[in-house]
Amino acid sequence: MALTVRIPGPLRRLTNGSAEVAVEGTTVQEALQNLDTSYPGFRDRLYDDQGKLRQFINIYVNDSDIRFGDGLETKVVEGEEISIVPAVAGGADPPLSMPASMPTEPNTGMLQTTA
């Protein structure tokens, strides 16, 4: 059952730059497992420590968000498209776009509002 998985820009280094890859699977979970087997690294980016899909990443089957369907158990059939759509901060200035380097001091530049 060949499916297409659409890879978002931030994760394309895991697929050697490919924007879409073909995987097999009958559920979203299976498809994403196979994706991780073919392109290791996806599991850590998509799931949290408890193995749940991260809340800042949306998975769509065609145009529907699986959170509002059967979640990872959502069935997929040949030819369908799975899209991984993470939240994007919107910025081009990385030091200001996330508080990564300043978790304890949420002040300077944090809320800079320039895309």
Partner: peptide
């Protein structure tokens, strides 16, 4: 913060 996808690759 450590997982920000837009931060890692600007």
């Amino acid at each position: 913060p450590e997982e920000a996808p837009s931060c890692a690759e600007a």
